[in-house]
Design a protein around this nucleic acid. Structure first.
Length: 825
RNA sequence: GCGGAUGUGGCGGAAUUGGCAGACGCACCAGACUUAGGAUCUGGCGCUUCACGGCGUGGAGGUUCGAGUCCUCUCAUCCGCACCA
């Protein structure tokens, strides 16, 4: 491989040069348009994987491109460094989470630097450092102050083997991700953020995000799950407590044949007490309580329930209806109770058939069944109301309106909107997270830690329990404190925050990362925010992206920043696959970035990953494809080094005079490539096609080099262009070539080239001639040729003559610049 | 079950507005250079046919002078959600 360029010396050389000269350090500059380019900050697991490389390579092309286009580009990097793996490592191997985490950061940072990404390392942050989590705690306090953080008892995921609660995302298929024990439910007092207060805004503002993938917006929309309906009260026979239900089908209220309460519903015990059903009801409710969410709510779990012995009265017609409890009604949606209309709801239908409950048809259309007893499935379509007293004959939507209006005027119901979105459970019984800044005082109750006392430091000298229980519960010096209010001894909250809290505001911190009195200054965030381009995996489509939007709206409400949405444009990159599936240790198909960089260099790794597939699509790793990218870079290297001497000192004129046809062709290609690469990178992020057009340019330059005589200014222009256009993708090699060609300044500081319209003017072009839609001939014509002349030329072609001879020409379509289609019969 | 995406040579992928399908790369084949090549360079490369030609973008229809692109139906794969009343 003697004709290969030496990436092993080139790459570190320029990385050092860029760093020494602070090329990527930025400050607010009102004189330039800003561009905030951000990749999702990684969890410091210890090693970079290909997914990271892809993520950062994409971000870096955008950063370098925008930079060369005159933008003031903020491109920072940091670490999402709190979280379970550090603690698991501590339990298993005895390393302290802090030590483990910082060592990982150190290692990953080194790996990242070998990729040559244009980060402003001055703004590096780590969410596990006190100077950062101080402000995560500050965020908590502000939310608390504004009534958006509260503590309540909730049934949470509990791993009986690890003796701890788990976040929803740590429950994989109903089991603990760590020990694979089936997760159960446990009632615990937990901290929540009231994200539901923002449900409507989170939904509404999705339409103001045209730069987001439709898929992500749809997922968020479904997750928020807004549904319009009404809530109304029913009386319970023999009780004075009302039973409140939520329904979206008020029009079917005359079809109610039974009621269902969630097993956890507070009325269950009261209404069944003293009846012959009491024991059975209690037994059922208890059994449901300990079932995991998965067992409780999956669609293939069979519906089951028991009768409570009590009856409710349908307020619309006075009918008595039996009250059941069943697994398919959830306590935390709506009111935890439903009116069941088996004729017009699939779930109710299934349940009614199982327990032989009556099915009463109240909606009918032309082809819908009329007899409840004969129905095979619920009819959920549109139609008009029947068996509904004076409402009979109304349409579904009109019926809903009138019935809700009646309920409101009669005072037992009202129109309501329900969201599927639940409040965000943020407390974790874990050590390696930001401590929740609250204190429990016997006299004063729950008291927030005053702002000036932040941060509440995580104690370092702790002992990790093999059970996984938080060591904070055993650190007296931590939990023993005094009440900030009255000064008496008090107990500190030992729960820490979900790591998603840390990542909900880091993008704002990057704007002002060294601020020690505030999370960030308003001036700094208002200059940089919102993030112009955010890049990351689609796995964060809901959680992180929704939480970050929530925080941004909250920070806007308390006047900390002026934008309403954090991320203007979102690019969700595809996965990196090997042999058709995601790289994983268990499958043994992992390709390590370190190895690739060692063998081929960072430029090759970057180029391959960008060339193999457009960014949003999954990418199939190919070792041979990597070879190909390496080969291409070497081809460019040889071309440039071979030409360097010839073009040394050659002047590129402002205006080119008449050129030889071959020189003219090359110049055309040079400028066509500028246009193509600029469009592909700026408008579409289609780096694969941008790179392929650069390859075409270099191929043509090779051909041009074979000629005996060359127009050196044209060649030099092509070489310069080639290097600059390639530089966002393969920055080290291009920097080297730039200097080999005699330049002393950095390639990063070059202006992006503009194409010359004049060079793109061609005097002739190829036109396809079709006969009845099939291409039969191609001709070269002058560019400005008239439609008529083009048509005549097409008809005059001997081959065309032969084909249309003896046929009737029905019509001729002439598309200037493209083709002529002669329709003949 | 619901929602979304994707389907193009041996492979990764191009075709941006309905206008020459297969750019670019990989693999493969042939040749050149060479002591040698798993380096480099040149050429070939959808299927089929000796050829003229015919066929071809998951499948079946349709609209159109013209469809990978638009419409209807259908199949397959992947992803997300999954009793939300």
């Amino acid at each position: 491989m003697e004709s290969s360029y030496n990436f092993k010396t080139i790459e570190p050389k320029w990385q050092k040069h860029w760093e020494d000269n602070n090329f990527f350090r930025v400050n607010e500059d009102p004189g330039k348009p800003k561009y905030y380019d951000l990749e999702m900050f990684p969890y410091p697991s210890g090693n970079l994987h290909m997914g990271h490389v892809r993520n950062y390579a994409i971000g870096d092309v955008i950063a370098r491109f925008k930079n060369m286009n005159g933008y003031n580009v903020l491109h920072p990097m940091g670490w999402d460094s709190f979280g379970l793996p550090a603690e698991n490592a501590a339990i298993k191997h005895g390393h302290h989470p802090a030590q483990w985490t910082y060592a990982n950061i150190e290692n990953m940072k080194l790996q990242l630097k070998t990729l040559g990404i244009s980060y402003d390392w001055d703004r590096e942050l780590a969410s596990c450092k006190p100077d950062y989590y101080k402000f995560t705690q500050w965020m908590f306090l502000k939310l608390y102050e504004n009534g958006l953080a509260y503590k309540k008892s909730a049934a949470v995921n509990w791993c009986p083997s690890c003796q701890t609660v788990l976040a929803n995302e740590q429950v994989v298929d109903g089991s603990c991700e760590r020990c694979e024990t089936t997760v159960t439910k446990k009632q615990l007092a937990q901290w929540f953020f009231k994200i539901t207060d923002y449900a409507q805004r989170l939904l509404d503002d999705l339409v103001s995000l045209p730069g987001w993938p439709e898929k992500v917006k749809t997922m968020q929309k479904n997750w928020i799950g807004r549904s319009e309906g009404c809530q109304f009260d029913l009386t319970i026979v023999g009780s004075d407590e009302p039973l409140t239900v939520f329904t979206t089908r008020a029009d079917t209220v005359f079809g109610v044949t039974y009621m269902v309460l969630a097993p956890e519903h507070p009325l269950v015990e009261k209404i069944s007490r003293g009846t012959s059903y009491e024991a059975e009801v209690r037994e059922f409710a208890q059994r449901m309580q300990f079932l995991s969410d998965l067992d409780r709510t999956s669609t293939d779990a069979e519906k089951e329930g028991v009768f409570t012995g009590a009856y409710a009265v349908n307020p619309m017609n006075g009918e008595n209806i039996p009250i059941w409890i069943a697994n398919y009604v959830l306590i935390d949606y709506g009111t935890g109770a439903i009116m069941a209309v088996p004729a017009h709801d699939e779930r109710d239908f299934e349940f009614a058939r199982k327990y032989n409950l009556p099915v009463k048809v109240v909606i009918q259309s032309d082809d819908s069944p009329t007899d409840g007893a004969q129905m095979k499935e619920a009819y959920t379509g549109d139609g008009s109301m029947v068996n509904s007293l004076e409402y009979s004959g109304l349409s579904v939507s009109e019926g809903q309106k009138q019935i809700v209006a009646f309920m409101e005027s009669a005072g037992f119901g009202k129109g309501t909107i329900n969201f599927r979105l639940r409040d965000w459970l943020i407390s974790r019984q874990r050590y390696w997270g930001a401590p929740i800044p609250m204190v429990y005082c016997e006299d004063c109750g729950l008291i927030p830690v005053p702002e000036e006392q932040l941060p509440v430091l995580l104690p370092e000298d702790v002992e990790f329990k093999p059970s996984g229980e938080s060591p904070l519960n055993y650190v007296e010096s931590f939990y023993k404190t005094t009440c900030p209010n009255c000064g008496k001894p008090a107990r500190r909250e030992t729960d820490t925050m979900d790591t998603f809290v840390c990542s909900s505001w880091y993008f704002a911190r990057f704007c002002d990362p060294h601020n020690s009195s505030l999370p960030f200054s308003k001036e700094a965030v208002d200059y940089w925010m919102p993030v112009d381009q955010y890049i990351g995996g689609v796995e964060h489509a809901i959680l992180h992206l929704m939480y970050a939007r929530f925080f941004t709206k909250f920070l806007n409400d308390i006047n900390m920043l002026s934008c309403n949405e954090p991320f203007t444009n979102l690019l969700t990159q595809g996965m990196v696959l090997k042999d058709g599936s995601k790289m994983s240790k268990s499958k043994g198909n992992v390709v390590s970035p370190e190895e690739i960089i060692n063998t081929y260099g960072a430029d090759t790794a970057r180029l391959f990953i960008l060339f193999a597939s457009p960014p949003e699509r999954d990418l199939e790793w190919s070792d041979q494809g990597v070879e190909g990218s390496y080969r291409f870079l070497n081809r460019v290297w040889r071309l440039v080094t071979d030409c360097a001497e010839d073009i040394d000192g050659v002047q590129i004129p402002e205006l080119f005079s008449e050129l030889e046809p071959s020189a003219r062709k090359l110049r055309f290609k040079t400028h066509a490539t500028i246009k193509k690469v600029s469009d592909d990178v700026r408008d579409r992020f289609n780096f694969n096609t941008a790179i392929s057009s650069i390859m075409e340019l270099s191929n043509m330059m090779y051909a041009y080099r074979d000629q005996e005589e060359q127009d050196l200014p044209v060649l030099k222009e092509a070489i310069n262009t080639l290097i600059i256009l390639l530089s966002p993708f393969a920055p080290h090699l291009c920097e080297e070539m730039w200097h080999v060609c005699g330049h002393n300044d950095s390639i990063c500081q070059q202006s992006w080239p503009q194409y010359d319209e004049a060079a793109l003017v061609q005097d002739e072009m190829e036109i396809a001639i079709q006969v009845s839609g099939k291409v039969r001939e191609r001709i070269i014509v002058p560019t400005g040729i008239s439609k008529e002349a083009l048509e005549a030329m097409a008809l005059a072609q001997p081959k065309i003559q032969d084909l249309i001879n003896g046929k009737k020409i029905i019509k001729i379509i002439v598309v200037p610049g493209k083709l002529v289609n002669i329709v003949a019969q």
